[in-house]
Design a protein around this nucleic acid. Structure first.
Length: 479
RNA sequence: GGCCCCAUCGUCUAGCGGUUAGGACAUCGGCCUCUCACGCCGGUAACAGGGGUUCGAGUCCCCUUGGGGUCACCA
């Protein structure tokens, strides 16, 4: 059996968006499952639109997601270079072969001539779509000047069909009559998509091509190139689009499209992968998967053929599940940078931070929310919500806070397990209830009305800080 | 418009000829409760329409409708 070799081949013309991530993810999962190779190749032959910045963002995005590649930018490999703009010599050689074998020809028709033909077509048919250019050079017309600017076109068959068995879409068959003599090389020598893609996939030994289903139209021309070159045609898997909630094309209006935005919003890479994999792929009733499970369970035949819509709510749910799955030490490491971004310096292995995690994580979805919820533990004085203070830190609350302070002062160890029964019993003896005590105390300790359980907060805070905060609140409420 | 793809709850989906059409998110009730969450229990909610094939169609075929993609010297 030959080694599975799959690639992700983005063009660096923007951020890596979630649709692209899903395609990359499926490919990566398949490569990892099969013990094959995952190749990253940058298709930057459009000099006008490609940017180095975009290539950097794509690499950074994949790194953050943990979709590591065996060959490609930064890691190299035996079939490099992995930027198409550095592979021009390879394409040139292949094109000469195609021309020599009669599969391609030089076309000297100018853009103006093609445009004129297009307009004549529009005048004749009343529509501008569906135009195919018939080059006079296809059948051997000689140019006035062979050194004049020209493109190279593929001599597409006019009859017959091309078919393939798509791993996702099933058998697809296309009539050659719908094809035109597509351009392989621009006048400046830069290859076009269909040529570069096929040549690279051949020379890189790619066995399975997975891409968005908006590329399905390109598959027939590409198969024809494989055949003209006498190369083995790989398998194809055309992954459906990810659409906006309203069924339209996904854009920044509908969602954060670039994956790095999710990193900044405090999403976990595994959650992003989990959400995206389930968008189109299913495994019975299971919704939440670890990375290892995904690698084990993924298969192309369980990828749906229809487009799916982005759902931010479900995404948030999946993220919340992954947040809660993470063990406390790891979670503390993840959240520390987000605390620091808020101006709160905490060591990632601070014991209080780790101890707070079990109490905080049921109440947060993103790392940003988690940091927000952890903040008051690590500042000298919690930021006071004035509305909360006005409502709960009243003169009437003072006796309760005093009572609470004196009741807990002698508790050792100062933990939820000790505090909770001790205070409850004392309250009962005094005829007090948690309802009267809890909210004023919560505001005193955290500065807000929502938090983990009162005694859990006390445990993380420690006795000194707890008593100090109660004292300050009593002073404030007493005036 | 031509060509191509697609079609089960609002959304993601299970279903691969015989099911009370299942799960998840969302939504609506309720429980738990010191707040907020988490969690738990329950409800509403779908086979686009029409023809076939078959003893029997969500499942197979055709048409219609609807949605998407694509018609470049972009990828």
């Amino acid at each position: 059996m030959t080694e599975v070799r799959v690639r992700f081949a983005p063009s660096p013309t923007g951020t890596l968006h979630i649709g692209g991530v899903r395609t990359a993810l499926y490919s990566w999962l398949y490569a990892r499952q099969q013990g094959g190779k995952f190749i990253l190749r940058v298709e930057d032959t459009d000099q006008g639109r490609s940017t180095e910045e975009s290539a950097r963002v794509i690499v950074e995005s994949l790194r953050w997601l943990g979709l590591d590649w065996d060959e490609g930018p930064e890691v190299g490999g035996p079939n490099g270079p992995y930027f198409q703009s550095q592979r021009l010599d390879i394409y040139r050689e292949v094109v000469e072969k195609l021309i020599a074998s009669g599969h391609a020809y030089r076309c000297y028709a100018t853009k103006e001539e093609i445009e004129a033909a297009r307009e004549a077509f529009a005048a004749r048919t009343g529509r501008k779509e569906g135009f195919t250019f018939e080059s006079p050079y296809r059948d051997g017309k000689q140019p006035a000047d062979p050194s004049a600017p020209h493109v190279v076109r593929f001599k597409a068959p006019r009859e017959g069909t091309t078919a393939w068995d798509d791993l996702i879409k099933g058998r697809i068959e296309i009539q050659h009559s719908t094809l035109q003599d597509f351009v392989l090389v621009r006048p400046d020598g830069m290859p076009l998509y269909n040529l570069g893609c096929v040549v690279d996939d051949i020379t890189m030994g790619v066995t399975l091509v997975a891409r968005g289903d908006d590329h399905m139209i390109n598959t027939t021309p590409q198969i024809l190139i494989y055949q003209a070159l006498g190369a083995k045609v790989p398998e194809f898997a055309h992954v459906p689009m990810v659409l906006a909630p309203n069924g339209q094309k996904l854009s920044k209006r509908h969602a954060a499209v670039g994956v790095l935005e999710y990193r900044d919003m405090g999403y976990l890479p595994d959650a992003v992968l989990n959400y995206l994999v389930r968008l189109g792929w299913s495994y019975g009733d299971q919704e939440i998967f670890t990375r290892a499970e995904l690698i084990e369970k993924f298969s192309w035949d369980r990828v749906g053929a229809q487009a799916s819509r982005y759902d931010a709510k479900k995404f948030a749910y999946v993220q919340g599940e992954h947040l809660r799955m993470l063990d406390d030490a790891r979670l503390a490491e993840e959240v520390a940078p987000f605390l620091e971004a808020r101006g709160v310096k905490v060591a990632p292995d601070d014991p209080r931070l780790v101890k707070a995690m079990p109490y905080l994580k049921p109440r947060a979805v993103t790392l940003v929310e988690l940091a927000e919820a952890a903040e008051y533990f690590f500042v000298d004085e919690p930021a006071m919500d004035e509305k909360a203070a006005a409502k709960f830190l009243t003169p009437e609350a003072v006796p309760h806070l005093r009572w609470l302070a004196s009741t807990i002062a002698g508790v050792e160890p100062f933990t939820d397990a000790q505090l909770s029964p001790h205070v409850t019993a004392a309250m009962e003896a005094e005829g007090l209830t948690m309802k009267e005590i809890a909210q004023p105390a919560r505001v005193a300790l955290t500065g807000r009305t929502k938090s983990p359980g009162l005694f859990e907060v006390m445990e993380v805070l420690g006795k000194d800080a707890t008593l100090a905060r109660l004292e300050r609140a009593i002073e404030r409420a007493g005036t």
